[in-house]
Design a protein around this nucleic acid. Structure first.
Lengths: 216, 216, 216, 216
DNA sequence: GATGAATGAGGATTCATTCAT
DNA sequence: AATGAATGAATCCTCATTCAT
């Protein structure tokens, strides 16, 4: 029991270290030895827990993306399909990413390089997400302002907006002079996205400023 | 003249090859030998044109980003600051990126890894872009729906939306079953972004569907 | 214990191989791969024991020079400061160098190229040696034939004579048709230097030929 | 004529640059490109004047050693074989080396590494020098204090003393806090060597201090 | 499970040399 | 005679991985 627990802990430590290094430097830039060192291990010991760098990478991706997807499914399936659903999903998503802020960087790295791993990533994880979003949007009366072939773009837009904030955090930090991952920044971004969402798929607002400013 | 032209050509070939490889694999993943090979050169010959991989990388970044920034400045300074300005800038940006579709990937790679180069990238290139955008938004009467501290987020949102489409093209291609960089896809995305822009910073529309659908 | 011993052995093997190659070819001429091969190692394995070629080089220098200096200090501090001290030091020095005959070559290489490492070499190792020698000479009544500003030159002369014999051994071998590092050659050179030393700092000899020929 | 003259000049410039770089860094450490650059040439242009690095190296050695040898022959054959001959040769040698102070470094480099070139160096240049010295010593009545098999060592000693001063100049500079190649340093070293020579092969001196101090 | 040592493959870079201009 | 460009070989070093302990 003690041993198994220690093993679990070590594995977790490796995964966390790998996540941060893969997020920072990408697959090629992250050295196994560095990951091991950041886990408090010798470079060779890591191979007692993962058979290869590639396997470790995939485990990191899976560990990061799986809960994210589950969270999304949960948020989307929560009762209340009304116009507030979009805002709720955004909130859930942002709240989740606040706890795993490196995942978007991993995804972005992978997406940008279009690696072999990408197809599986897309098919197994992103595509269901898209379809789920599509269904939700089609069910929403207020989304009727978007034609059918615009809906995928709309979902992609949400993806860019939410993931971009996390993935490009290092750049934004330099430009905005504040840490985009700080709680206040995230809260502000969440409010901003909800407002934006209202404008995009909310009901047409005859006097937007007043109502929207309160809406948060 | 012949010589200078040949030199220009080789250097350009190297820059193009480097751009594509850096975009695909990032700085660490792109091997100098591969860049040279893709330029029709021996690995060593590349060093007759660039003193180091790092220098080549920076030249690629500069070559990609400088014209982009100039294009943006040009578009922003064109006459007609009205509500149509946003749409015009988006159009110019998308048109420009259609010709250099790898640049957003480069930027995203750099942004995601937060490399040493990032600070300069941010200060010299992205920040002026932000400030220019801020000024434009403040001058726009319809942007008054956004509070002052939301404006940077709005600009970042545009950044994510435009750059994301190009940077994550490989992922989107898998998900959407079409090439996001194909002319029709880009035209659709441009229309979509103009419509979205209308909703975000356009005049409040009492009956949006009709008017907006024609607006393109 | 077994492990530590094996480690010591490998490191020692590398140091020995590096010493011979650095002595033969100098820093630039000695390839890490060759050093590794001569140690029975793959080129990469060497880096498990030394972080860089430069570090290995410095370790080799230190390993060679440190004991030499200690030997000198020991010989100089031995009782009996009289006119025989010079001869005793020479003997000790020659005996020591017989066991590490490559060290003078290393020093000569380094001295000739005036490398960055030289300053440290000079200040930490050679200079104390000089000062020690100076003190010994000043205390010797028979050295009064040399003026104060000639004493450093006298010490340098000893340096040249002793080190030169070892460092230029390859050249001397060609010229003299015998190996200058062979025991008999070294014995002869030692006798020669003692005799020479007698002439330089020994007592004025009224009938030198007779007395000196027996002096050995 | 102009062209030929320019060529001669260029060749000389290359030889001078090569001499300094070979002296500083040895054969392996000196890059052809650096030699060319120091000659004001492109790396490729050097090959218009010398067919290879090796050939250039040999030309440098020859250019440095040939005049030195001739100078020695001249000094040795000058009238007056008496006991002053040693001093006169030393003076001529030192005076010559003052004008080509890098040559001893070249020789030392070559001697230390025992390169392929060494055999020729030894046979063609150093050995005649030795034999000439041997003859001179045998003819000198005062050298009778040295047995026959010590005479080669005596000559080698002179070699070490004279060449060492120049070759190890960088090291001596650090230790003695003055430039060993400065005119005063060289003058002092010359006086020192003459005095030393008097002691080694001069007549037995009953009251050395007085007489020798004036002897310079 | 942890580690020091070993290694083949590969990475960026340098180098001597060649060649067309 | 000079040079920019090209290149194969070599250089130092890193890396992912393996293995004995």
């Amino acid at each position: 029991m003690r041993l198994a627990e220690a093993d679990f802990t070590t594995k977790e430590r490796i995964l966390a270290a790998a996540e941060s290094l893969f997020a920072e430097r990408g697959f090629d830039g992250a050295a196994v030895r560095d990951i091991a060192a950041r886990s408090g291990l010798n470079g060779a010991s890591l191979y007692n827990h993962f058979p290869s760098k590639q396997a470790l990478y995939e485990a990191v991706l899976e560990r990061g993306i799986q809960p994210l997807l589950e969270e999304l499914v949960r948020a989307a399936q929560a009762p209340g399909r009304g116009p507030a659903a979009g805002g709720r999903i955004i909130e859930a998503l942002m709240a989740h990413l606040e706890r795993t802020p490196l995942v978007p960087r991993l995804v972005e790295h992978e997406a940008v390089r279009g690696g072999e791993h990408l197809a599986r990533l897309a098919r197994h994880w992103i595509r269901p997400l898209f379809e789920q979003g599509l269904a939700a949007l089609k069910a929403s009366p207020d989304a009727r302002r978007w034609s059918e072939d615009e809906l995928p773009l709309l979902i992609a837009a949400y993806l860019h907006l939410v993931f971009g904030h996390f993935a490009m955090a290092p750049l934004l930090a330099e430009v905005l002079d504040e840490d985009p991952l700080a709680p206040e920044s995230l809260a502000r971004q969440t409010r901003f996205l909800r407002k934006l969402s209202q404008l995009l798929v909310g009901p047409p607002s005859p006097h937007p400023e007043g109502s929207l400013h309160e809406a948060q």
